[in-house]
Design a protein around this nucleic acid. Structure first.
Lengths: 236, 236
DNA sequence: GTCTATACACAGATAGAC
DNA sequence: GTCTATCTGTGTATAGAC
């Protein structure tokens, strides 16, 4: 699957996510007209992601947000109850979407090697589509209150789990030879994360997400594919 | 080389670095008595690294810093001229030290494969010794003024360079088979970075830095070692 | 060299008119 | 639902006594 195909299939603009979030949390919002609420919420979230990327969430004042989102200070507070609440909302909104999309794209039909390739590819494609969200999750949700920090850690481990489950299956079927599944999962995660943490580097070098995905897959396959077994199966 | 050996050899406490920095930048400081200055500077830097790790540099107020470092607000300003200046000083102080130590540990005598192993190991050991500094560089120097941001990017690329130079040599000598040296360098960097960005994870899982280093080396060697060539050399 | 006290700006948050 | 005006706390930074 190419990135363009993936992009057409999933469609995750900030507006899409905001609409979903609004519908599932109507009770939380003072503003009751859906079209108004979604429009403003979209602007708030998009602007926050944007400013947080440029200077960090802490350094973004609500006056900055007011100016750039086009809403007054007073109006902002119709959509959240505190600045920290805004952060929590974005993290929640984003991670729900990410988890949903990842689950939808789990490869269930194929062999472990294909599954692993798909998993790496989908994770990377999604992180490309939702760059600003992923960056936000990583940079801003560390220093939060316990509840939100938990969520963030859970999410990190869940992603790792997607990968290690495939590795386990592959080892069982003897197509992978991996001693330390957990560490293997960790470094795969690390490589995938680099894609959005070092956006500037890859952009500057004109490396596409497809190219990067293929490269990560090559590195990992050279490490996990059970060559011994291959030879064994081919020789007799 | 084990981590313990490395640790004994390099000795980089905050005090060591602060003393070096003070001696090389005497002119910048109002406080002229070395022992007083170094003592206080050490406390300021250590506390800043500490609080930045816990809640972020932005979220750390100078009142926090004053309380925890044991110096009054007024006294703090004998050691820097603004909060941003403090950040810049720590970044500068740290990166000078890192670069110096890395250069001292470049392996010049051996073959590329050994050099690569040494490079990975030394980088990881150093990042373990200077965890809070490395974390600080990554998290806090993104949103700075151009001058400091430049420095930070230069440093990232320099580290990558250490690695890719070795890879290049290995390819030339036909001990490595690597198509894309730059990307290989990137993912090695990514794996090394994960060690200090996800400290909580590795600590929780009781993984030592030696174990982690060996693992990264294994992953990379399985990818870069030229098996074809090995066979060719062994067969005739 | 270090302290306490204070200046001043700006942050987050809210009240109340429209 | 949204705006402007305003409250109150806290932030960085400095002045001046010791």
């Amino acid at each position: 699957m190419t990135f363009e195909e993936f992009k057409k299939r999933v469609m995750v603009t900030v507006e899409d996510l905001s609409r979903d979030f609004y519908r599932e949390n109507r009770a939380l919002f003072k503003v009751k007209k859906e079209d108004v609420a979604v429009k403003n919420l979209t602007s708030i979230v998009a602007t926050t992601l944007n400013l947080s990327f440029k200077k960090g969430f802490d350094a973004m004042s609500l006056r900055d947000l007011s100016r750039e989102s086009g809403l007054s200070m007073g109006a902002l507070y119709s959509y959240f109850t505190s600045k920290e609440d805004l952060l929590g909302m974005i993290q929640s909104q984003g991670q729900v979407a990410v988890e949903k999309i990842l689950r939808e794209h789990i490869d269930t039909r194929n062999d472990p090697a294909s599954k692993l390739r798909t998993a790496i590819r989908v994770h990377l494609y999604l992180s490309e589509l939702m760059k600003s969200w992923f960056y936000f999750f990583f940079m801003e949700t560390k220093n939060l209150n316990q509840k939100y920090r938990r969520k963030s850690i859970t999410s990190e481990l869940m992603t790792e789990r997607f990968i290690t489950d495939i590795l386990k299956e592959g080892v069982k079927l003897k197509v992978f030879a991996v001693d330390n599944i957990q560490l293997t999962g960790s470094v795969i995660k690390a490589m995938m994360q680099d894609w959005y943490l070092k956006q500037w580097k890859y952009a500057q070098r004109n490396i596409s997400v497809e190219e990067y995905a293929q490269f990560v897959i090559d590195v990992i396959e050279s490490f996990v594919i059970d060559m011994t077994h291959r030879k064994t199966r081919l020789s007799p």
